[in-house]
Design a protein around this nucleic acid. Sequence first.
RNA 1: GGCCCCAUCGUCUAACGGUUAGGACACAAGCUUUUCAAGCUUGGAACCCGGGUUCGAUUCCCGGUGGGGUCACCA
Length: 481
Amino acid sequence: MKVITRFAPSPTGFMHIGGVRTALFAYLFAKKNEGTLILRIEDTDQARAIEGSIQHIQDSLSWLGIDWEYGPDKPGPFGSCIQSERMDSYRAFAQKLMDAGHAYPDPYTHDEITAFRETAKAEKRPFLFRDHRPETFSVWDGKSPLRFKVPEIKRYEWNDAVRGELEAGEEALDDFILMKGDGYPTYNFAHIVDDHLMGVTHIFRADEFISSTPRFLSLYDALGVPAPVFVTLPAILRDDRTKKLGKRDGAKDVLEYKTEGYLPSAMVNYLALIGWNPGTDEEIFSKDELIQRFSVDQIQKSGGAFNEMKLKWFNREHILKLSSDEFLKHASLFLSKETYTALNKKNLLESLVPLMRERIQTFSELKDMDEAGEFSFYAEAPTYPVSGLLPKDDMDKQRTATRLKQVMSLLNTLNDSEWHDQKIKEVVWPYAEEKGRGLVLWPFRFTLSGRGKSPDPFTIAGVIGKKETITRIEDAIRALG
RNA sequence: GGCCCCAUCGUCUAACGGUUAGGACACAAGCUUUUCAAGCUUGGAACCCGGGUUCGAUUCCCGGUGGGGUCACCA
């Protein structure tokens, strides 16, 4: 049987980590089994709908490379993937249930039900509507809510692909609402109708749905439809583990991570490892490798905390794997236009890649470094106070100038083809060892960068080239008088 | 409160009855090209508790405790 999974968000704002993780697992499973992923928009609550959400959801998934076969942009053989465009189906199934005596109109007002609920609460009992189920059912006028009549009050046991045997008592069953007063179906009803009509074989969702599963099962029973396989994912918790990660508790829009310079491959890699693992020590995976390795058996039962530190580490690992071109493509989005142009004009971009790469965890750090002037001295000779050239152990100008002259003459023994950091170090190092590393290397480095903190002098000299290096040293010697 | 789920270092996790309980992130110390970053080395750090079952339990069973979820005309 062909695997069909779905990801079914409601368009009520941005996508956060939790939702994305659910989508990712459904996707990995579908791909692994050469199945289909459906992106279904659950917009049956028009009051909560936020404009632009559908596009935002698609943008978020697309950024991560989670692609769907059918979605809001691509109807399937079963019709639209947007629930508000599938109203006929829900009405038809509601009628079917009424015909079979499995549904009835709710005779109570909102206030009456609130009163029932409060009484139950005061008596410390769970509220069950079925305790108030009317003796006889009237004909539904389509204006009042339509309720489900639970066919049989019993204990349900079912199998979950992750949790194994699960069960729940009769308290979990109730006459829940199928169709709301506004004519729209509830989630409880609509998702079951859709999963059935769309041929969904595996439902991936987080563990807050475990407790309502008996209600779903009783509805499947009433419809005479077999239930799909339930794959329950562990919750993603806040960093402090105090509760589930949610929008109200600082869960960010996933696209914010894009803005902050995270790679989608790193996000996918990290997310996959919250609640799943390959059973080995390996941690770094591409999306394709994850598809290969993914298995429901290795999904975790207990919840996991979302830890941004570790995400950063994954991001760094993925940055390290980028080709030079790919790196520059991302970097160009975070460097200022001026810096990028200046470096590009002098052909320095390529040689700066390894240097930039080893210093960042996210691309937005390039922006910070750029704004702090950490790239300016590559394209242009730095300006600095002469005192900065003097090493702290010997602040004498004359001797500093003498050492710089010696460094310069050593450098002049190299020709252009030998000019790279290793070779430069080779010729200068013995002299630095002899005179005192700091006394030689500090002025050498400061001459080139003009800053207290920077990469080492050999690296900088290698990047800017022999001619520029010599020029800067000559200027420094002159400044030292 | 009822019902349900979960339980290994601070965090993500490995282990599927017998291990010095492994790895990664984070943390600390040392080394390193006076700086920064990276890197390398080393270190501290966990089986929630109590009963069973067993020759032997982190692992299986039961109970407790703790945490989480859920009890909507939200999904």
